[in-house]
Simulated scan of single mutants.
Amino acid sequence: MLRLSKLTDYAVVVLIRLDEGQRAAGCDGVQTSPGIAAATGVPEPTVAKVLKALSASSLVVSQRGARGGYRLLRPLDAIAIADVIAAIDGPIALTACVDGNQGGCEVQSLCAVKGRWDLVNDAIQGALSSITLADMRDASVPLVFRFNTHMSAPLAE
């Protein structure tokens, strides 16, 4: 099973929260780590760790001083999910072969699919690069997946 880390999930939440702050009327877009934590429910030390990684990847910028905090460097429609994953978890690589770690496989010399995982990895990278944080922010749950709190089956259209 492919699964993103919790930190990557939290990074998406933090970035969308930063966007909400920047779009709020009368707000300069700078938000503090404790403020983001309070608004999202993500623990403050985790928010700080995520913001540090996002800053190192030039997705956010920190501002020092009494009115300091963090703000987005680009709008959400210019940030791909692949960028967030790479910022938090590193490059997208399904196998050791794909990430260039050739020494990580005992059967490399006999491998029938050596180098062929690149095709799959590139497809996943392409898909994740085509989805932006604005897409995530604006996505709505299709009606077929919505549940009425009084029913156990999806609502009909």
Rank of each mutant, 00 (worst) to 15 (best):
V141N: 04
R116K: 14
G69D: 05
V113N: 08
A25S: 13
T40K: 08
V113S: 06
L4G: 04
D77Y: 10
G29C: 01
G21S: 12
D83N: 13
T32P: 04
F147S: 02
S109F: 09
A39D: 13
G100W: 05
I131K: 05
L51E: 01
L143S: 15
D9K: 06
D9G: 08
V42R: 02
M151L: 14
R74C: 00
I81G: 03
E44Y: 03
T40L: 11
D77S: 15
W117G: 13
F145L: 14
G104L: 01
V120A: 13
D28T: 10
K6P: 06
T46P: 00
V120N: 01
G90E: 01
T132E: 06
H150F: 10
G103W: 08
C111R: 07
L2P: 06
P43W: 06
S109L: 03
F145V: 04
L143C: 03
D28E: 12
F145H: 14
R116Y: 12
R17V: 05
V12T: 09
R17N: 15
C111Q: 06
V120P: 04
D118V: 09
V47A: 05
D89A: 06
E157R: 13
P45K: 04
D83M: 01
I16K: 05
L128G: 02
G69W: 02
I131L: 14
E44C: 08
R3P: 00
V14G: 06
C105G: 05
L7G: 07
L73E: 13
S152V: 07
R23N: 10
Q22H: 10
A87R: 03
T40Q: 11
P142R: 08
L143A: 12
S5W: 04
H150P: 00
P154H: 02
T132W: 02
P45Q: 05
P34N: 05
M151C: 03
S140Q: 14
S109Y: 07
A38P: 01
M1L: 10
A134T: 04
I81M: 14
N101P: 00
R64N: 13
R64I: 02
D138F: 01
P91C: 00
R17A: 15
N121W: 00
A48R: 15
R3T: 08
W117M: 12
A93T: 04
